[in-house]
């Protein structure tokens, strides 16, 4: 009897999907930006949505479910990366990349649009996140700051740095391409 009065109304599956629908792609794109592999990004998104579903009755308490889900996704992916780094995967990855990529990338990235994608892969995680949230998802500074638990000025600095790096590297590739 006591439970019934304090309990939040429980969402049905379809209600939940309606809440989640508008931003599930954003979760996926954020995961992919961090994890790079689309399979891993799909798994991460799935995981986050399932976690969200299991918290279902609490969802009504969050003013902004989207922001909450985005933060969850960010943390989940960063954790993934961290545990991957501690395993030998990182060693393989970085060894492989250093020797091989410049050539491989030039071959792969014929069109300059995918250059941008590759350049973003090389950015530090925080700049990656800021650039993704701003230039792809078009969040404002306040939202980004809340999401990443950063000061708005720090967001601005990171964003400026990220954009300039992309420009610089793009110029380099561009001049290689032409020359």
């Amino acid at each position: 009897m006591v439970h019934a009065t304090t309990e939040q109304p429980i969402m049905t599956q379809s209600e939940f999907l309606n809440v989640v629908m508008p931003f599930k792609d954003k979760l996926y794109r954020l995961s992919k930006r961090l994890l790079i592999s689309s399979e891993e990004a799909e798994d991460a998104t799935q995981e986050v949505l399932m976690k969200l579903w299991s918290k279902n009755s609490n969802i009504a308490n969050y003013k902004n479910v989207e922001a909450f889900a985005m933060t969850m996704t960010k943390n989940f992916c960063l954790d993934r990366l961290k545990s991957k780094q501690s395993s030998n995967l990182k060693l393989v990855h970085s060894n492989y990349e250093d020797g091989n990529t410049s050539l491989q990338k030039q071959m792969e990235a014929r069109d300059s649009i995918s250059w941008v994608e590759k350049i973003m892969e090389e950015l530090p995680e925080q700049q990656k996140l800021v650039l993704q949230l701003r230039d792809v998802e078009e969040y404002d500074f306040k939202e980004i700051a809340d999401l990443l638990e950063m000061q708005p000025t720090a967001v601005r600095v990171a964003l400026s740095r990220a954009r300039k790096t992309v420009r610089e590297k793009l110029m380099q590739k561009h001049s290689y391409g032409i020359g």
Partner: peptide, 8 residues
């Protein structure tokens, strides 16, 4: 787009 189904 995220196209995978979420098994709820």
């Amino acid at each position: 787009r995220f196209t995978k189904q979420v098994p709820l």
